[in-house]
Nucleic acid binder design. Structure first.
Lengths: 130, 130, 130, 130
DNA sequence: GTGGTCTAGACCACG
DNA sequence: GTGGTCTAGACCACC
């Protein structure tokens, strides 16, 4: 499982872990019943304090995305399709809203902004195809 | 000058002040030579400690967006149009890119994403017209 | 790390700290990834309030010379060699230009001024060798 | 008399006034017995608070460079040649020393630094001849 | 009146 | 343990 930590972003490490795992569950990178790496494994791999990973896992559990099976480990929980869609929508909405607010505050019109958005999408896609 | 502080967002007050003033300068809400509210005025209005406001102003000064005139007050600095455009572009690009990356990672197509973006823009606009 | 504070110079303490650390980074006395003294350590050593040190560090961070690693400490940021050279050149040029302008305004010839400059350099060097 | 005030330099205005008048006396731009502009005249011309000019004049008087003749005005004092030379030397020395200290701290050798100094002198001279 | 600096002390988030 | 934020209050320089 690919997990990238940016120590210089100012975003707390445990939140970066949460966000990325949550996203992998949403996008199908992690499926129902898949076992997560143990706290120590992941901590070692990311060169991060085990407490940090543990904290991230606790939040994911509280969110219901992950289940603890005692003595065995942590597993991706079954997520109802509705709930999955809902979370997906929320993720997208949050990200898009920030961009929208910025565009409005900078005085960029809806047409300009939407066009710019599409252009960036295109560019990013073609970049990742390389 | 409109300035909204959210005490519960977790974002430090002085950073909220920095961000909002920076944006008002960028969007022309505050122009070259305009005087900023005095530290004490703004502090009183936001009901925060004057030092908190002063801290925000200091960072804006270090950024070159604001100038001190001793014993007089703080004024919006002259920013070259080129530089202003460059900062604006960067702000928008950063915000849009994050949304784009999220859309791609969630498997949302360009058409869907762009349409969603436009819809959110519309909704936000109509909300702020209220 | 050598840091000298002059409490009677009129120059704010935090600015003295900024200037000296910036210069140590520029001259290679502090290198990429080196850990800075903790806020409390340095504050204790200089016998100033921790917030004063923290303030200095914040500005260095805003300048991009220093990076926070949360819960760990502060580290010297990676500065591109080009950028470093550019900053160095600028620092030297500014200082030299002021001396040049003064020499010209006082009617001192180029030869005299350059000789005087070399003499002062020599004297300062021998003084610091003591 | 040419006097330039930079409101953005961070240097107190009254100090800018002192420095420039002192320099004009030293370089002969102002001679023994010349009358200085009145406080109000100068303040009006520089668009500065009269108190600021008055403060500058007081310091110049305390320094002995200027004399108050009651009911008439302020005049440039007679300065002994020795004293004039001494002040001149001091001005140059201060300016040069700052450049020297910077060069040493940046690890620039005496030869390099002196050559750079001469080059800057040359360049500045040719620029002002244009 | 303006802004700037520093202190002392409390509280928080992160690892 | 690390740094960050905010407050309250004192003092200073400048205009």
């Amino acid at each position: 499982m690919l997990l990238e930590i940016d120590h210089h972003s100012g975003v707390p490490i445990y939140r970066q872990v949460i966000r990325q795992i949550r996203q992998q569950i949403m996008t199908g990178g992690l499926k129902d019943g898949d076992q997560l790496e143990t706290v120590r494994q992941l901590a070692g791999r990311l060169k991060v304090n085990p407490m940090t990973v543990s904290k991230a896992y606790s939040f994911l559990e509280a969110e219901g995305l992950v289940e603890r099976r005692r003595g065995v480990g942590l597993f991706v929980a079954k997520v109802e399709k509705d709930q999955r869609e809902q979370i997906k929508d929320q993720l997208l909405k949050d990200a898009v809203n920030k961009a929208v607010v910025m565009a409005i505050q900078l005085g960029v019109s809806q047409e300009e902004a939407a066009e710019f958005f599409a252009r960036q999408y295109e560019e990013y896609k073609s970049k990742s195809r390389r």
